[in-house]
Simulated assay, not measured.
Amino acid sequence: MTEIAEAAPEYEVETEEQILARVRNNARRAKARTWGLRALLVALWLGSWELTASLWIDPFFYSKPSLIWDRLVEWFTEGTQFGSIWLQLYTTVQEAVLGFVIGTVAGVVLGVLLGRSRYWADVLAPFIKALNAVPRIVLASLFIIWFGLGLSSKVATVVVLVFFAVFFNAFTGAREVDGNVINNARILGASRRQVLTAIVLPSATTWILSSLHTAFGFALIGAVVGEYAGASKGLGLLISNAQGTFDAAGIYAGMIIITVVALVAEWVIGLAENRLLKWRPSQAGSGHGV
């Protein structure tokens, strides 16, 4: 028995600092592999597109990455035929942000109020569904007739798109609040306003914040659609002009700029969500990256 015990290997016990360092290193390596694979996929996609457009398909209709890059460089160094690219970008972002804020506030307020009032929700349900069913491009055209080609018509289009994306989530979040919690609060003497602000709103926060990721994408779509229908400046105008002049590279360039703006906004909203929901239990690995 003594010989067996002496022959048994001795294991070195890791300290807490060593375990944390190993976990961080593994996480960094995994992240590096993920980004490396992403970069490889993008390189393969762009390379195959460039090769295909150079050898087999007509780049006049399908464009290619090198032409798109040239158009982006031209816009950011020489400007566009409608002025500086920064002016076009600022105009579209301004329209999207203003409409996003107005539509979000309206969607949250009405969603929570109707979510807690079953009677008014039943009364207004057909009207809300009818408004949600109206094609947005039709509303964009009407807004241009009503408000002109300026900022107001684009903001109105954005508000309509954002409102419904936020409203339905806020409505569902308000309906999903545990009734026992509300009843206990009322027994303890909480007023209707206190129940709404201290229980319903915090409980619906997760639903509301999750809708903002989609809502800002809708905000950019609304701004571009409004500009596409009629505008004097903006990224939608650049894309519309590129379509009219058969400039496929210009269309792709406008799409890329809008995509970058959407990704930056998604990152900012994600930071705000993580900060506001620090109280929520961690759900690591449940649906991340989807």
Rank of each mutant, 00 (worst) to 15 (best):
M255H: 06
S152F: 07
A219W: 06
G99T: 05
F127A: 11
A215Q: 07
E50A: 12
I19E: 15
K31Q: 14
F246Q: 05
A53N: 09
L44G: 12
V138M: 14
A223D: 01
R71K: 10
I102V: 15
G287W: 01
L263C: 00
R280E: 00
V101F: 13
V112M: 14
L151H: 00
V105P: 03
I257D: 10
R22A: 15
A253T: 05
R136T: 09
R193A: 15
L149M: 12
G79N: 01
L271W: 02
G254S: 02
I85K: 05
E273F: 03
W69N: 05
F218C: 10
T205C: 08
E78H: 08
W35S: 08
G83N: 01
G287T: 02
E273H: 07
Q194C: 04
S152T: 15
T172N: 12
L212D: 04
A185C: 15
G226S: 06
L67P: 08
L51S: 12
L124I: 07
I145K: 06
E6G: 00
F171H: 14
L151R: 03
F167K: 00
V138K: 05
F147A: 13
L114A: 10
V195I: 15
F167M: 00
L113Y: 06
Q194D: 13
G236E: 04
A121R: 05
T206Q: 11
W56D: 04
F100S: 02
S84I: 00
W75T: 04
F167V: 01
A27W: 04
L46E: 09
T259A: 12
S48L: 14
H213G: 07
F168Y: 15
G226M: 06
L235M: 07
I182P: 08
R186F: 09
A30R: 13
K31G: 12
G179H: 08
I182W: 09
V162L: 08
A43E: 09
V268R: 00
P9N: 06
K278Q: 12
E78D: 13
F147H: 09
V97M: 07
V200T: 11
R38G: 15
I269P: 00
L220A: 07
A185D: 11
V101H: 11
I137Q: 05
V138W: 12
W207A: 10
S63D: 04
G103I: 06
L124T: 11
N183K: 13
A284T: 10
A190E: 04
I251S: 03
L131V: 07
N183H: 12
R22K: 15
T52L: 15
I269S: 02
F168R: 11
V101G: 10
V112Y: 10
I145M: 14
V166C: 11
L55W: 14
V97N: 02
A219G: 11
L46I: 13
A198N: 14
R136D: 09
V224W: 03
T80H: 07
I102M: 09
L235R: 03
W45L: 14
L151S: 00
L113W: 09
E176H: 10
G179E: 02
Q18C: 02
V93K: 06
S84Q: 02
A5F: 06
K233F: 13
S54M: 14
Y119V: 14
